[in-house]
Amino acid sequence: MILAKVIGNVTKAACHPGLETARVLICEVLDQNGNATGKVLGAGDWIGAGIGNEVMISADGDACQAFLKDSNTPLRNVVVGIVDSRGGKAI
């Protein structure tokens, strides 16, 4: 899974029909200590993550099938969890 922070969202001018109802968030990937890496991903969101939330993104398409009606939608990243807190020592 990918640890990321939601920094914004995207409105679509045109998209694959399966993605019409999808809410696409712009998430910045975090490293293990929670620092931003500058890498940006677009993830589908069906659980209501807001801007500024730390989220966990699944990078496998099969996980998206549970959220999608159209099975041949080309979506790979989906927000599957909102992070409450992270423990462990900084590496």
């Binding site: 995207v10 409105t11 679509k12 001018a13 045109a14 998209c15 694959h16 993605l19 696409v24 398409g61 099975s71 041949n72 939608t73 080309p74 979506l75």
Partner: peptide, 19 residues
């Protein structure tokens, strides 16, 4: 996935951003 016949494609344009 969007293709019914398998195509050797590994990057597909899923959406065009409006804003």
């Amino acid at each position: 996935w969007p293709f019914d016949k398998p195509k050797p494609v590994d990057a597909y344009n899923a959406l065009i951003v409006d804003r």
